[in-house]
Amino acid sequence: MSYVTINQVTKGYENQVVLNDISLTLKKGEFATLLGQSGCGKSTLLRSIAGLEGVDVGRILIDGHDITNLSPRQREVGMVFQSYALFPNMTVFDNIAYGLKMKKVKNVKSKVKNMIDMVDLIGKEESFPHQLSGGQQQRVALARALVMEPKVLLLDEPLSALDAKIRKSLQKELKRIQKELDITTIFVTHDQEEAMTMSDRIFVMNKGKVVQSGSPSEIYTSPVNTFVAKFIGNYNVCNMEVFHKLVRSTELKGNEVAIRPEVLQLVSVGEDSLDIQENWGIKGFIKDVSMTGNVLRYEVETEESAFLVDYLHHRGEMFEQGARVQILVPKKECIIL
């Protein structure tokens, strides 16, 4: 039974279609992520769910109720904006209490206290937003949305303004709170790593369409098209004719083949450990080596196209730039697109 249903939603501005026939469903308590490049319509979809933007065609349902034509205040949806949108004239306490006061709820004080406790802001109750750090403002924004016990929590790139370290710790904390409250969440990001670590389900968007949905590992290991392959995992995507030429075999059929950089292996030319049954070999030379923390990334130039090969950064064994190598391509890791 789906808790959130978005049914064939389409929306355009003057001369451009921003959401193109989007349909998706979420289960209760699920943490879903909308992942896509800048301008692909993520924020617009989120704002449509919140009611801050109308849709041209389609329906939006939450918990069995059609909310397509309700105003934002009737939807019981919480949202955290990218720039937080805290009320500058109110203290942390008043910011968080705002929604409860508007709804004339009882026990405002104890509810707000609990929330402040949960997001770890004790002692900051009387501070104003401009006296807080970015990470603290972020927590206030989150607390302000959560205290209303919304049916769905919408997060529009809530962490993108923070630096890498705080970001990592807030990711964990966000996930903890989400699980603790079991709140259905839609999270927007254009950072695939963030999407992978946080989500139960990822919806990859491109140009106003959902191009693939699935669990992080499904999306990562079996992309359905070139866009997803390139966007998600730095896949090596190779035209099939070119690939046939490189591996001197026409065993694979299809348009393109996609191979993850970390399943490839390098051996020195002459060192004949090629298992013909399991692998293909492609000859080339190391064009470039780069290091991102624990990963060594080789760019290997072959006669037709370049391949990326990722290695965990071990001590010792490393190929020099210019070294002639053979790439081992495991047959079963080749994904046909």
Partner: peptide
């Protein structure tokens, strides 16, 4: 944006 936020909170 402040108005958006306030309206979502029930104002």
């Amino acid at each position: 944006q402040l108005v958006d936020a306030a309206e979502l909170l029930g104002a």
